[in-house]
Design a protein around this nucleic acid. Structure first.
Lengths: 370, 370
DNA sequence: TTGTACGCGTTATCAA
DNA sequence: TTGATAACGCGTACAA
């Protein structure tokens, strides 16, 4: 009789002349099976091409062997943000090693987001989730606690959280950008921020403000936007309509910076001659627009890997500690230059000075093709 | 005694005073249960807050209630391409309705890609998969047949395929772009293509070539690139180094077009005065660079929804038919204009003529903010 | 080491 | 026609 379908653990047991239990022990490398028997069992399993049934195992262990990610972003932004694909690629590298899967959910409203987590938990689709884009007093922390769903947050929440965090610090990158501009002679450095309710948007804004204060300068105007090109363009118009036009603008992401650059050009303002701009993310395109965009490079793929490791460790029971990631680095390109009527700067401007232990690199150092 | 954990079907049966089987029949709306009994069972289930166990059901029905997507792209490109997030958002809308999950796998090599499908199939993680980025003589078709994994292809493969296809036709968009340029007076229209091995890259290239021939013009030079900004820049340099410099370039995606625009600017070529450019994808940024990019708008989210429906129908047993999607549309913006020394054009140039049943729209018509 | 119950829903078989 | 009973799918875990 031809066995249809895949061999089961019972088939292996029969072939090896032992019980199911013995097979299970042998295959999981646990004590309680004589070495000779173990070999016989392993040989039989291999000969029949047996693989454990994921479904059977999931049922009996009450585990999903999968982790989840719920993305809540407006659709037009999802495509423009290079963060997620890179983050996910990093996650996958780790998951593949450990034979786990990633269940993705993309939603476009807050309601749907909560439902997403609830469904994931109710169906037992995943053993844990990633929490991205932390918000002020993020309600998802309590939700996940209620659902008893282990999680890892990207960044440290501003509310008490029982979950380990992968600490990513955007601030040094912004701080470096401000310093770079100040060294070039800028005194009016504005900021186009991300939405107020995001912790990372807030952090970038704070870093901008603090760095200016540290340089003895008053924080220039700040306009919150939504990370989209349209939002960046609108914010830039607002800033350029001011009586006291800034000589430099720090954007919370590349997309807004690129849109801002176009706005400046349409208004006849030379970049960087009249206006210096910096982005955030260091997207591939940043090096390939004209002028090439000075930006802050982060490592979303590295964060993804670290987050996946932390989450799996948490699920396995060990782990639970925060992980600190390397800070973001400024990549200097052509969109930043001394302001039109340079104040006297402490150092000769035009070539930014390098700092030891720095978070500033020039494009040439990283083999940037621009 | 307090019941810990979720109620099972056995609990419901006990509460309703019937057998497990009866409960299952009642809850799945199948005949063989008297109406009164059915009501009693449903009431009991509701009262106890019973939800079917996804794992139990998966085990007994040998189904995963999930579909898979394996993305094989170089990491730097993944972030830049707006296609995937939009496609996935469309997929999710449909999956959520039907209580299915999406298992995502991101890989960066061909080897890993094949492994990805094999793992998905071996573990029974999914009931079917999406096949994107079809290649010439795509080996994945045979692989999926071997794995007995139902699939839906995005586009029609060039090899015999047992799978339904969601037919997306990029060609009308490219054809419209060529016509638009020809009407503006261009006679030297070059193309920066996608990689040769992708069917969609090939289709766009063919459309460009055919449209030029149809206009009685010889196809200008064509340079294959890799969809990245770096590749687009390099290809543009190649084209602009030619003795016979084209007056217009059609790019296979926006990213390459934007990089090409920067190259033109760096070389002192005014866009669109000296060189007209068109992109493909109509990313959000396209409307917000300067000059705003004429591009071809597609509907990746709509394709995702259609593909998800087709795949679920296929898995359910009904369906299996191809689905045809609306063709891509050209969106005319500021990066295209008459060439520097215009040939006499059949119509007054400068304002592209509208065609009935057309695939050309102007930015104003779609409420484009540029 | 073995035997067996368990996790949970589906479905074939069979008696009423 | 209605509904109970039991087998099934598959690996894990505990008592014997």
């Amino acid at each position: 009789m031809v066995r249809q379908g895949r061999p089961t653990i019972t088939d292996v047991a029969r072939a090896a002349g032992v019980s199911k239990g013995a097979v299970s022990f042998a295959l999981n490398g646990r004590p309680g099976v004589a070495e000779g028997t173990r070999q016989r069992i392993l040989a039989a399993a291999k000969a029949m091409g047996w693989t454990p049934s994921h479904r059977g195992r999931a049922l009996s262990t009450s585990r999903a062997f999968a982790v989840g990610l719920v993305l809540a972003r407006p659709p037009e932004l999802l495509g423009a943000d290079p963060f997620f694909p890179a983050f996910i690629a990093g996650v996958e590298r780790v998951l593949a090693e450990r034979n786990q899967a990633l269940v993705l959910q993309v939603v476009t409203s807050r309601r749907a987001e909560e439902d997403g987590y609830r469904r994931l938990a109710a169906d037992g689709r995943v053993d844990g989730v990633f929490l991205l884009d932390l918000r002020i007093a993020d309600p998802r922390i309590a939700l996940l606690e209620e659902l008893r769903l282990p999680a890892v947050t990207l960044g440290r929440p501003d509310v008490a959280s029982p979950f380990p965090a992968v600490l990513v610090d955007d601030r040094p990158g912004i701080t470096a950008a401000v310093r770079h501009l100040v060294e070039l002679g800028h005194r009016h450095v504005a900021h186009v921020a991300g939405p107020d309710h995001f912790l990372h948007g807030r952090a970038r804004r704070d870093a901008w403000e603090n760095a200016l204060r540290a340089a003895g300068l008053p924080p220039g105007p700040c306009v919150p936007a939504d990370f989209s090109a349209a939002g960046g363009a609108q914010a830039t118009h607002q800033l350029l309509d001011l009586a006291d036009v800034p000589t430099a603008i720090i954007y919370a992401n590349d997309l807004m910076a690129m849109a801002g650059m176009a706005v400046a050009r349409e208004r006849g303002l030379d970049v960087p001659g009249r206006l210096s701009l910096t982005g955030f993310d260091d997207t591939e395109l940043a090096a390939h627009i004209s002028p090439a965009l000075t930006s802050v490079r982060t490592d979303p793929s590295g964060w993804g890997g670290a987050a996946a490791r932390a989450l799996l460790d948490l699920i396995e029971g060990d782990g639970g500690a925060d992980v600190e990631m390397a800070p973001a680095q400024l990549v200097v390109r052509a969109s930043t230059a001394p302001p039109p009527t340079p104040h006297q700067s402490p150092r000769p401007a035009g070539r930014p000075s390098r700092r030891p232990g720095r978070s500033i690199v020039t494009a040439a150092e990283i083999g940037d093709p621009s």
